[in-house]
Amino acid sequence: MPELSMAWQQFRRALVIASKDIRIYYFKGPVVTFGVLFPIFLFLSFAIGRHLTIDFMIPGLLGMILFFTATAISPVVMPWEAQARTLERLMSCPIKPQTIVMGDIIASFAFGAAISVVPIIIGLVLGITISNPMIFVSAIILATVCFAALGITFSIPPSNLPATINMIASVVRFPVVFISGIFIPLNELPVWGQWIAYISPLTYFTDIARDSIQGQGYLSPIIDFAALIGFTVVFLVVAMYMHRKTMPARI
């Protein structure tokens, strides 16, 4: 099975890339600020002064933190590497362009998943209960992969200016947060609002989180999972295919 052993070898090398990413890029000060503190403050500015229950707040906070952390660094790794002139060296190694993309996604996933522990612990301390931990954890894992893959698609245009890529990312990230049932739950949205919400992958994660913590989601968890899987597959395929095309233009 040469294909299988090749795939395994490339996966292991993707892990090497991911561990390099984490050591170099994920321990920078601004990363933690933008990825963690920023969504917390954004959420607090919304929640303070309104009488919201912890059960309502935690799923939203979790969704936001997960979304922001998993998409915080992944878009700029590629331009950073190109600027630092390390990308060409990487591309001459016996790894596929998809392996580099996969490595960046894995790093982003690990970071997002690790940080998601923060709001969960806050929630547990404040007294939330999680009705079905299996479903809850699976949803976190799936959603983090989905958002990490989305983050990588932002850097498809072969610009090596992190600011340009961050601008593209922000144009997508901010609207997504507002249309995903975080601040206003799905059942309180008008029908047209719901239709907009359905184009955001974050909607489905927030819905599962509400189901697990508040005990009531708006959609069936099966639909939520199916939608998340669908988005993930699309983002992965687009990211891998398009980066392969645009990567040589970066050097």
Binding site: M6, K20, I24, A84, R85, T86, E88, R89, S92, C93, P94, I95, K96
Partner: peptide
């Protein structure tokens, strides 16, 4: 991959991870 595996490369403007 096979060709790359056999080659060592010093690209023109490359850098190590600083």
């Amino acid at each position: 991959l096979k060709a790359k595996q056999m080659a060592g490369v010093v690209p023109e403007t490359a850098n190590a991870y600083i």
